[in-house]
Design a binder for these strands. Structure first.
Length: 272
DNA sequence: AGCGGAACCTGTCGGC
DNA sequence: TGCCGACAGGTTCCGC
């Protein structure tokens, strides 16, 4: 489900609702993919701490707590954080409830159970464990960096763009959209791109991700914001899922192929 | 090292 | 109606 713009949308929603709140109680309804593995070892350190800030790194959601502790969430395909008034009963897909005082409940909901919740001693401890590449919206994303990172590799550029250890945050939808906007076929090997292609990739990646954040992300099937509203960027997608629509540039057919067991969408005549 | 494929888990949709 | 396969916004592990 969520890529960088969707995670950023969730983080902004959480910043305006849960920061400064105490974690008064935690209830785990299903504990797969929670670390520490035992529910008690997960719950006990959290209770009584205050949420000082919520930040995004790659597709991870980091809750900085006080006294110092880091709660790290990853939504994977179907995870959601929802802020709501306290509820009587958990919904079928509610996995964890974080009670934030008497009048606010933060729900971690995840139908497929692929999402993760983990505790780390500090931000440094988290970064030491996760090998994450540069933030695409930071000044660290340069065409020089991309060319050095991808230029010697034979893997298709679509796979490289989604390699979180090189550039962190691009997923399946935005990879297709970015490659359409740059006119590069998703199958082209990294070592077949020109310097100008890498310059275009930087410019287009930042433009598309920023635009998607402005539109609160893409809701195709089930992405939801913290207040359960949908995003709007699905109305601006050019190729992802558009095999039934003509190419917006040349009116030819949009093609679907499979790479790394994921769908890629592109226009074979506009993208080479 | 770098690459491709399978695994993790559940839900939905289309075809027969 | 029921069954079966394909597919879904991600990451990680394993073998070559």
């Amino acid at each position: 489900m969520p890529e960088l713009p969707e995670v950023e949308t969730v983080v902004r929603g959480l910043q305006s609702t849960v920061v400064s709140r105490p974690i008064t109680a935690v209830q785990v309804f299903r504990d797969t993919n929670i670390r520490p593995l035992s529910s008690d070892a997960f719950i006990e350190p959290l209770e009584g701490r205050i949420i000082r800030s919520v930040i995004r790194r790659a597709k991870y959601i980091l809750f900085e707590l006080e006294p110092e502790l880091l709660l790290v969430g990853h939504l994977r395909m179907t995870g959601k954080f929802i802020a709501t008034l306290p509820l009587k009963q958990p919904h079928k897909h509610h996995r964890v409830w974080f009670h934030l005082g008497e009048d606010l409940l933060m729900v971690f909901q995840d139908s497929r159970c692929l999402g993760t919740l983990e505790l780390y001693e500090s931000l440094e401890a988290f970064e030491a464990v996760k090998p994450l590449g540069v933030e695409p919206l930071s000044e660290n994303l340069t065409s020089d960096y991309l060319e050095k990172s991808f230029g010697s590799r034979s893997a298709p550029i679509k796979n490289l763009l989604m390699d979180q250890t090189r550039v962190a945050g691009i997923g399946n939808i935005y990879a297709s959209e970015i490659l359409f906007a740059t006119g590069i076929a998703p199958t082209r090997p990294g070592n077949k791109l020109k310097t100008q292609d890498y310059k275009n990739l930087v410019q287009v990646t930042q433009q598309i991700l920023n635009e998607a954040i402005k539109k609160n992300g893409t809701s195709i099937s089930d992405f939801r914001r913290v207040d359960e509203q949908t995003g709007e960027f699905q109305n601006f997608l050019k190729v992802y899922g558009k095999t039934d629509k003509p190419c917006p540039r040349c009116s030819g057919d949009i093609k679907r192929i499979v790479q790394q067991q994921r769908s890629s969408f592109y226009c074979p005549s506009c993208q080479r």
